[in-house]
Design a protein around this nucleic acid. Structure first.
Lengths: 193, 193
DNA sequence: CTTAACTGCAACAACCGTGACGCAGTTAAT
DNA sequence: ATTAACTGCGTCACGGTTGTTGCAGTTAAG
């Protein structure tokens, strides 16, 4: 289930892998076409070391995608989507996801390869998302006639937009951003009664 | 004002430039790292011909961005953002922009170079967008306390999301999509009174 | 402590993309 | 019809990236 645990890596090797994945995220989010050399330098590692763990460039990318997907799944799970009150779950999940997605923007923006682990994880998260929305609808937070699939897409879009971070919300804490997202999702811009 | 009209091009040359720009959009939207060769082939043109009009690869990219920005500006202008009733303008602009942004997704997604023509056009459009929202607020369509800059970002995000096109809305006409966007923007998902 | 894993370094071959030529042939403009 | 613009083709040099290998030195694990 985990990464690709062919065999337990030695402690230092595992540290290297982590450093490489983190550096890859950092460098590739700035320039998707960056070279292995650049990633290696950013990781404080020789280029050949990367090739030792990840045969092809694409192998690194896929590992990156899987790693990030797993973290995102944790973030959602932590919000107790099935048990917490819908509004609470929605807020908590939103705040958590903002954190993770901010740190792993490139990896999570990658097109999901059909058979990959990342794809499976994302699918599962899509289902959980719908579940939360259904529970919210049952609580009359959402109109009965609303299209939940469209709503989920809107939710994703709001998350993405919040992450771009206009100059205005530099240094604004995650909970505030999450509150704005949830509020916008549920009420839109119309006048409050 | 137009392109980079150093001198009037011959008729056939102008056709070539068009074909190149259109092919570049098509190819690069599928793979941002595609080679000049691929673009040339898609345009039905020799690679050297591209280099004749656009010295560097980046020059092509910038021309592409400018071209698309101009088209987008036309789309907004056509919606009469300053004179038409806000709701009408909003709908019309949305529908128009959906068309243009669908056809020039790559070029419009490009990071705006600080001094470029595209950047100036986009800035101007941002202002016009705020104007429409202000007019809508004056008409009580939008809550008085609403943050119009956040709202504009939400609007952009909804446009972007609609363009990804889930399998559900394949073949749905632009006006329907626009209606959904405007409705979501103004009312969100909450229960209708 | 001893072994096996891990790493950096240097060097290698192979490939691909870029940009620039000149030349010969075609096409629009006057 | 004449001219000037335009294009395709072949070819060139150049630089950068990739992936591999061997070796020597370092480091974790038993």
């Amino acid at each position: 289930m985990s990464g690709s645990a062919g065999r337990p890596l030695r402690a230092d090797a595992e540290r290297s892998v982590r450093a490489i994945l983190e550096a890859a995220e950092r460098v590739l989010s700035a320039d998707p076409g960056a070279s292995m050399e650049q990633i290696a330098t950013a990781a404080g590692v020789a280029r050949t070391t990367i090739h030792r763990r990840f045969a092809h460039r694409q192998a690194l990318i896929e590992a990156l995608a899987s790693s990030a997907a797993r973290r995102l799944a944790e973030a959602v799970e932590d919000g107790r989507p099935d048990t917490a009150p819908p509004l609470v779950a929605l807020h908590r999940i939103t705040a958590n996801v903002l954190e993770v997605k901010g740190a792993w923007a490139f990896a999570l923006g990658l097109p999901a390869e059909p058979g990959s682990e990342a794809a499976a994880v994302h699918e599962d998260m899509g289902r959980r998302c719908i579940t939360v929305l259904e529970r919210a609808r049952a609580d009359r937070l959402i109109d009965e006639a609303a299209d939940l699939h469209w709503l989920r897409r809107v939710y994703y879009a709001l998350l993405g937009e919040s992450l771009d971070g206009s100059p205005d919300d530099a240094g604004v804490d995650t909970d505030t951003l999450a509150a704005r997202i949830v509020d916008t999702l549920l009420h839109g811009a119309g006048p409050r009664t």
